[in-house]
């Protein structure tokens, strides 16, 4: 595929993803925290529907991609490698997500809506850069 087609496809896929984040409520920290608050009296389970819908749709398209494209043109599933970096990284990520109710995709959307989110997004970029160093 030509580079222009690839870039357009990437932009449209990103747009569809961002539209899904906005429609679902994922970009709103209060809704996310309401979903994570399973023990509280105000638990809002709606966001479970995001994963319930996203996973089978993605799985179906991954399957079709593997059927229709040569194996070297779609990413293969990584080998099982469950080490301390995966566990500690996921735990730290989860704590941060639970503190603010914001994960990376919504962070990139929210900063374009309200500049206050830079207080979250800029340290996030610093964290990504630090993580890059540790992985290298």
């Amino acid at each position: 595929m030509s580079p222009a087609v690839r870039l357009l496809a990437a932009l449209l896929a990103g747009g569809l993803f961002g539209g899904g984040l906005a429609l679902s409520g994922m970009i709103n920290p209060a809704i996310v925290l309401g979903f994570l608050d399973i023990a509280g009296g105000q638990w809002n389970p709606n966001l479970a529907a995001v994963m319930i819908a996203a996973i089978p749709v993605a799985a179906g398209l991954f399957y079709l991609a593997r059927l229709t494209r040569p194996a070297n043109q779609v990413p293969s599933t990584p080998k099982r490698q469950i080490d301390w970096k995966l566990i500690v990284g996921a735990a730290l990520f989860g704590i941060g997500w639970g503190l603010a109710g914001i994960c990376p995709g919504p962070a990139l959307v929210d900063v374009t809506i309200d500049g206050r989110f830079l207080v979250f997004a800029l340290p996030m970029i610093v964290g990504l850069a630090l993580g890059n160093r540790l992985r290298a």
Partner: peptide
């Protein structure tokens, strides 16, 4: 809304994998 938004997220991830191989 969460269900439809989730389907869009899944479709976007699936198309990015299919077309862009990512």
């Amino acid at each position: 809304n969460a269900l439809l938004g989730g389907a869009m997220i899944g479709a976007a991830a699936g198309l990015f994998f299919w077309i862009n191989g990512r």
